[in-house]
Simulated scan of single mutants.
Amino acid sequence: MSTPDLTPALGGSVTAFVEGSSTLIVERTGSGSDVLLLVHGLGMGRSVFAELARRLDGTVVAVDLPGFGAAPEPELPLTMPQHADLIAAHLASTGTPPVTVIGHSMGSQVAAELAVRHPDRVRAVVLAAPTVDAGARRVVRQGLRFLHDTASIDPRVVIRGVREYLRAGPHIVRKIRATVAHRPEQVYPRISVPTLVLRGSRDPVCPPVWTRSVADAIPQGELAEIPGCGHETMIRDAGPAADRIQEFLAGI
């Protein structure tokens, strides 16, 4: 196994948590008793949350899932439940109190699994640009939607995204398949904590009908829309999303 790069991406302290062939890169920044756990999307890494992390109040914990960002490739790409179990093992090993888990895109699937499989570890959930739309669960269909979204994104976001996808390595197709194969709609009804579903108003990957169904499926779910954003919701301009997340947390 290669030695992971522990260079800070958010200006915090970075550690590696290893279990079996899987390595989770964890960066902590900020302070306070409230812990916010950031889980990135497909092909991304914790670096995309640099602006969001600065805008959130509390201790921010951002991860690179195995095979993404600076985390080495595992023997096989992890499933969404396996990602959630690995994060839970890290939280347990560090004695971290219950977290607000904020998952973007594929990270929302991991966040949902964490909340259901390890409810003692989760205080609240934020599902930003939740995938995968049950009405379009095909690799080609999802790919076309991502391309449509990319066409309207700030070039700086595109460059960052391309860099992270290249870092995701040769197994990206298998990782896409693991994402598309997951059935988050079977998980949502079992989330027992307050949950905010965030959608960018211009997001073609997560249509309004789908995100409304996600919020409706969660017993304590609520839906909010960020004007002018696409699928990148919290990456291009993190301010509105951070404000909405803080408002949500203040009310629970």
Score class of each variant (00 low, 15 high):
Met1Ile: 02
Pro4Thr: 01
Asp5Gly: 06
Thr15Met: 05
Ala16Trp: 02
Gly20Leu: 10
Ser21Ala: 15
Ser21Arg: 14
Val26Ser: 03
Gly32Ala: 06
Asp34Ile: 09
Leu36Tyr: 04
Gly43Pro: 00
Ser47Pro: 00
Glu51Trp: 09
Glu51Asp: 15
Leu52Gly: 05
Arg54Gly: 11
Leu56Gly: 07
Val60Glu: 01
Val60Ile: 04
Ala62His: 04
Pro66Arg: 05
Gly67Phe: 12
Pro74Ala: 05
Pro77His: 07
His83Lys: 11
Leu86Pro: 01
Ile87Asn: 04
Ala89Glu: 03
His90Ala: 02
Ala92Asp: 11
Ala92Thr: 13
Ala92Ser: 08
Thr94Ser: 11
Thr96Gly: 08
Pro98Ser: 13
Pro98Phe: 12
Thr100Ile: 01
His104Phe: 08
His104Arg: 11
Met106Glu: 06
Met106Pro: 00
Gly107Phe: 01
Ser108Phe: 12
Val110Lys: 14
Leu114Arg: 13
Asp120Lys: 14
Arg123Leu: 08
Ala124Val: 01
Val126Asp: 05
Leu127Ala: 06
Ala128Trp: 03
Ala128Asp: 03
Pro130Val: 09
Thr131His: 04
Thr131Arg: 12
Ala134Gly: 05
Gly135Cys: 07
Ala136Phe: 00
Arg137Asn: 03
Val140Asn: 12
Gln142Asn: 12
Gly143Val: 03
Leu144Gln: 14
Phe146Arg: 13
His148Gln: 15
Thr150Trp: 13
Thr150Tyr: 11
Thr150Ser: 14
Thr150Arg: 15
Pro155Arg: 14
Pro155Gln: 14
Arg156Asn: 11
Val157Glu: 11
Val158Lys: 14
Ile159Phe: 12
Gly161Glu: 02
Tyr165Gly: 09
Arg167Val: 00
Gly169Ile: 10
Gly169Lys: 00
His171Arg: 15
His171Tyr: 12
His171Asp: 14
Ile172His: 10
Lys175Thr: 04
Ala178Met: 10
Thr179Ser: 15
Thr179Asn: 14
Val180Ile: 13
Val180Glu: 08
Ala181Thr: 08
His182Val: 02
Arg183His: 04
Pro184Ser: 05
Gln186Glu: 14
Val193Pro: 01
Gly200Phe: 04
Gly200Ala: 02
Val205Ser: 04
Pro208Gln: 07
Thr211Gln: 06
Thr211Met: 02
Arg212Ile: 00
Val214Cys: 08
Val214Ala: 10
Pro219Arg: 13
Gln220Trp: 11
Leu223Ala: 00
Leu223Gly: 01
Glu225Met: 10
Cys229Met: 15
Gly230Phe: 09
Gly230Asp: 01
His231Trp: 03
Thr233Leu: 15
Arg236Glu: 10
Asp237Met: 13
Ala238Ser: 13
Ala241Leu: 03
Ile245Gly: 05
Gln246Cys: 11
Leu249Ile: 02
Ala250Asp: 06
Gly251His: 14
